[in-house]
């Protein structure tokens, strides 16, 4: 397979080449490395927007509204949706696309569904690379919808320049879940299904939580499109702000630290997993495990300085 030809085609916007390149990267290994070596790095993460939040918050429906807005613009909009791989069977149902079928034939929309394939952080190991491929094919912005997890959804911060965290009334203990991870990396908090009972109480609780962290709350209703225009305005504002300064929009130190850690882990994870996969078994003395970790860290170095 001619990788150079694939990359040239995808940079021309060829969807079949783009799709094949993504499959190669997902499969991993030397071919994937060789392909990625030829794909330009992201100039800025400002055009990568993460959408995260608990299951049932309405991520897919809201993203459907966002796609509808962004597809009217000059550039293509890219969407990466991550669904969980079953820990028992190794398979996955990729069911987000069903919400976006009205965009299926739009030349301005590119959608790719990924299975998390063992990654626990809400995105798959290949997600960062897939985003790069979509950007190389001209997608601006690229939305990344994470697996619906609460506490461990912060890996997205390593990939996206802008994180939108979604919640909705009636999801149970969602404030606690959001506190424990997502809120730390969220740039925008969206209260979806804002017409449901319990919305105003949830809004107050979120406002109290964000008071000392900073961050904005936007109320939406994905069913009738309420609040979507405001959300688009806020996303664009932050994207432009992020584009102006190399450090992105103003964030406090703890949030920046969280991002750096997440970003580093995102880079390290696939290397470590690949190394462990080559081991016959893991019944090793602790010393050996430490040595493997050190080795994995070593192998991740060339990439951790993008």
């Amino acid at each position: 397979m001619n990788l150079t030809a694939i990359i040239a085609a995808l940079q021309q916007g060829d969807l079949r080449a783009l799709a094949r390149a993504i499959s190669i990267v997902e499969a991993g290994g030397a071919t994937a490395e060789a392909l990625l070596d030829q794909v330009p790095l992201l100039a800025s993460k400002a055009d990568v927007v993460g959408i995260t939040g608990a299951p049932g918050a309405g991520k897919s429906s809201l993203l459907d509204c966002l796609i509808e807005v962004y597809k009217q613009r000059d550039s293509r909009v890219g969407v990466v949706a991550v669904d969980p791989t079953s820990s028992v069977h190794d398979g996955a149902i990729l069911g987000d696309r069903i919400r976006w079928m009205r965009h299926a034939c739009s030349p301005n929309v590119v959608i790719r569904s990924l299975a998390s394939r063992g990654s626990l952080g809400g995105v798959s190991a290949a997600t960062a690379a897939v985003v790069r491929l979509l950007a190389a094919a001209g997608c601006r912005p690229v939305f990344v919808e994470t697996v619906g997890v609460g506490q461990i959804g912060s890996e997205i911060a390593g990939i996206a320049g802008l994180v939108v965290a979604l919640t909705a009334p009636g999801l149970g203990d969602d404030i606690q879940m959001m506190k424990a991870g997502v809120l730390d990396v969220a740039d925008l908090v969206v209260l979806n299904k804002a017409d449901l009972p319990g919305a105003s109480a949830l809004h107050s609780a979120l406002a109290a939580e964000l008071e000392h962290r900073g961050g904005r709350i936007i109320s939406t209703n994905a069913i009738d499109g309420g609040g979507v225009a405001e959300l688009v305005g806020a996303i664009d504002e932050l994207r432009h702000a992020a584009g102006r300064t190399p450090n992105g929009h103003p964030v406090d130190r703890s949030r920046l630290e969280a991002r750096i850690v997440e970003h580093s882990l995102a880079l390290l994870r696939p290397r470590l997993r690949a190394r462990l996969a080559t081991m016959a078994n893991l019944n090793l003395p602790p010393d050996d495990l430490a040595r493997i970790l050190a080795e994995a860290h070593e192998t991740s170095r060339p990439l951790s300085n993008p």
Partner: peptide, 27 residues
């Protein structure tokens, strides 16, 4: 899924155009 496949489920009333376009993007 239980047999280890990754399955893109696209739902009812799909046109041939939608099916082919999705199949290509999902490779």
């Amino acid at each position: 899924r239980d047999d280890g496949f990754e399955v893109v489920y696209t739902g009812i009333r799909r046109t041939p155009e939608e099916i082919v376009s999705s199949a290509i993007q999902e490779d």
